[in-house]
């Protein structure tokens, strides 16, 4: 086990990558949020991205989903059986249509809609009824309505929220909100699911439930998962590999067991005894615009 993992540390994995990030640099004015980050995720893999606050994890997510456009580097997404497409420069809704769905660090559900309606909005973004069809209730509209209703129910059942379908999204307990966000993201039929701290603010039981959902998303639905998470227990249990960011740079990558004992990682989390040689960009951390929340 250890021998295998050693080989994969910082070495680009060979095989069938679903997403390939190469030399991505993202700057906000003088602040470098991501510096020459390259990483690949294999199809079917659960890859965790960890790192201290301000390390650039969410910036990476925002680059992967079209919210930010990196100044340098390429991001290629390879949908199953199709040729690679570049993510950079596409608006978020286009990126979502390629097959990359995401959740947000702070839940961004549609609060005035019910849990069911939240999922349904996601399902329906892939359907075709236009305003005319909707107003005239054409046969296709009815067909699509049935389909979206069934699919939304399936997805709610998948994350275990069937009983809460008609409750307002905002009225759900926090753990259920996180699950609902995952269901809504899955509703768009992604091949790659980006989860931004799904376990933040949840209790132990909710964490276990989330871990189970992530596992089943990966195994039963065959969706690759890219996961930002601070909860190490969850990361170690859920992820096949772990990428570690610090000050916008990728400092380690490998199996959870290997990363845990990586010296650079320990240093990033715990600091070094001989102070004064903080890594480049250290002063930027507090001023970075990504520190907004």
């Amino acid at each position: 086990m250890t021998g295998l993992a050693d080989a994969s540390v910082l070495a680009p994995p060979v095989g069938d990558p679903i997403v390939a990030v190469a030399h991505v640099t993202l700057r906000f004015g003088g602040v470098t949020s991501l510096a020459d980050v390259s990483l690949q995720q294999e199809r079917g893999e659960v890859l965790a991205v960890i790192g201290p606050n301000g390390a650039g994890k969410t910036s990476l997510f925002n680059c992967l989903t079209g919210v930010y456009t990196p100044q340098e580097g390429t991001i290629e997404f390879r949908p199953e059986g199709k040729s690679a497409v570049s993510v950079v420069g596409r608006r978020p809704s286009r990126v979502n249509r390629l097959g990359i769905a995401r959740t947000f660090q702070a839940s961004r559900l549609f609060n005035a809609l019910t849990a069911f309606e939240n999922v349904r909005v996601g399902v329906e973004s892939r359907l075709h009824t236009g305003p005319a069809g909707a107003m005239l209730l054409l046969p296709r509209t009815r067909r699509e309505n049935r389909r979206s209703r069934d699919r939304s129910e399936e997805l709610l059942a998948f994350v275990g929220l069937t009983d809460r379908a008609d409750e307002l999204a905002s009225a759900l307990p926090y753990g259920d909100q996180r699950k609902l966000e995952i269901a809504r993201a899955l509703a768009t039929g992604p091949e790659l699911l980006l989860l931004d701290e799904p376990a933040a603010g949840t209790n132990l039981a909710e964490k276990d439930a989330l871990q189970d959902v992530i596992h089943r998303v990966n195994t039963e639905m065959g969706v690759s998962v890219l996961l930002i998470e601070h909860d190490m227990r969850l990361v170690m249990a859920a992820a096949h590999r772990v990428a570690v960011l610090n000050f916008g740079r990728l400092i380690a990558m490998g199996t959870p067991a290997v990363v845990q004992h990586d010296e650079a990682v320990i240093e990033a989390y715990l600091g070094r005894t001989d102070a004064g040689t903080a890594p480049e960009g250290g002063a930027d951390e507090a001023a970075g615009p990504e520190e907004g929340t």
């Binding site: 809704s93 286009r94 979502n96 995401r102 961004r108 809609l113 009824t129 107003m135």
Partner: peptide
């Protein structure tokens, strides 16, 4: 009919949270 349709729900999603609406594939 529009209100209770795919289009009407998308309108509500856009009104509620543009960023989240984009993230679920709504232009």
């Amino acid at each position: 009919a529009l209100e209770d349709s795919r289009v009407g729900r998308a309108f509500t999603a856009v009104r509620e949270d543009e960023v989240a609406a984009e993230a679920v594939g709504i232009n």
